[in-house]
């Protein structure tokens, strides 16, 4: 007994909990990028640029929040980009048909929840692998988009335009409705993951499904609900994207699921599940956004460098995470 109770040595001398190391790594990279950008370019660290970082990526933050739930249980959701498009198209077509805003927004969000529920049921009760089930969800949502509107639909509804142009400015800092919603989603997700029984079950399922079942946790329900959450977040992201672009288009968000997954991975969440933090995913999105910003500022670099840099960062993070988990064992 005495041997067991000897406190284990911490990996780092700073006495940081090992669980935080990947997230800390992300924060360090984010800080470094800010410093490098600030040194290299004038006006890089200006309020306008930093505000835009949030404004341009509000929808991606919401997507990444939902994706974090799914990945924490050890699953994956490929449908989020298509669901985002579907919700933006539904919003645009229904508003143009004269349906009131108070009815349109709930319907659009519900569309995502329903698709999420369907995928969750396929995965949990019919034992279809998450990859395949959410792939089917992706095709389904994309196909439905084209049924609603094959072409881009501009939004002219006054209420919606007012909502999307609402903002608070303090000096050159700016906050839009979309950013406020994204922050609320993050706060809500944090609360659910760390302060509720459901949140603990999410971590438990990702840590070991069998042990979670044996502990009497509601594994089946949790595994379905995370996909509902992800679908709902994706649909909400669609509304934010519609606010950003003032239109709904069936081809928006192609490949956006990859951005969301990359943000979550860069944010330090392990894809095997059970380990990661919602705030890490937010920093992950910020890192992706900052890469884009730096490449814009550089001016001479072509847009494809974004992809290469993101790939390179992913490589570094993934290898580092691997080394960390190796040390743990």
């Amino acid at each position: 007994m005495s041997i067991l109770s000897v406190p284990r040595k911490s990996v780092s001398k700073l006495n940081v909990d090992r669980r935080y190391l990947p997230v800390l790594g992300t924060v360090v990279v984010f800080g470094l990028m800010l410093v490098i950008g600030g040194v290299r370019y004038e006006n890089f660290l200006s309020p306008a640029v930093l505000s835009n970082l949030f404004i341009n990526n509000a929808h991606l933050i919401v997507l990444a929040a939902g994706m974090t739930f799914v990945i924490l249980t050890g699953g994956i959701d490929l449908s989020v980009g298509a669901v985002l498009a579907l919700s933006s198209v539904i919003t645009a077509t229904m508003l143009n048909a004269g349906i009131p805003l108070s009815l349109v927004l709930p319907i659009a969000i519900l569309s995502g929840s329903i698709i999420g529920l369907g995928m969750g049921v396929m995965i949990q009760y019919f034992e279809v692998q998450p990859f395949v089930a959410t792939l089917a969800g992706m095709f389904l949502a994309r196909g439905l988009c084209f049924i609603f509107a094959p072409e881009s639909v501009p939004i002219r509804d006054e209420g919606f335009v007012a909502l999307s142009s609402w903002g608070v400015s303090a000096g050159r800092w700016r906050l839009t409705a979309a950013v406020v919603i994204a922050v609320l989603v993050i706060a809500g997700s944090w609360w659910v993951l760390h302060r509720t029984r459901f949140g603990r079950t999410v971590y438990a399922v990702g840590g070991g499904e069998q042990s979670a079942t044996l502990m009497g946790l509601r594994v089946a329900r949790t595994k379905v609900v995370v996909y509902v959450i992800s679908g709902t977040c994706a649909a909400l992201g669609g509304i934010l994207f519609a606010m950003f672009s003032r239109s709904g288009y069936a081809l928006t968000g192609v490949g956006m699921e990859l951005d969301a997954i990359a943000a979550v991975v860069i944010g330090g969440t392990l894809l095997v599940g059970g380990m990661g933090f919602i705030l890490g995913s937010v920093v992950g999105v910020m890192v992706l956004g900052l890469i884009q910003t730096i490449i814009t500022f550089e001016g001479t670099l072509s847009s494809w460098w974004t992809k290469i840099v993101i790939g390179g960062l992913l490589l570094i993070f993934v290898v580092l995470q691997r080394i960390l988990t190796l040390r743990r064992n």
């Binding site: 990859f131 997954i261 990359a262 974004t306 992809k307 290469i308 790939g311 992913l314």
Partner: peptide
């Protein structure tokens, strides 16, 4: 020993960028 889905995600993300680099966009 990296999970295959993550390991290949790297090339999936970077690959098209590399292809653009080769054709110069």
């Amino acid at each position: 020993g990296i999970q295959p889905i993550v390991a290949t995600l790297i090339l999936m993300t970077a690959g098209r960028g590399v292809a653009m680099l080769i054709t110069n966009g």
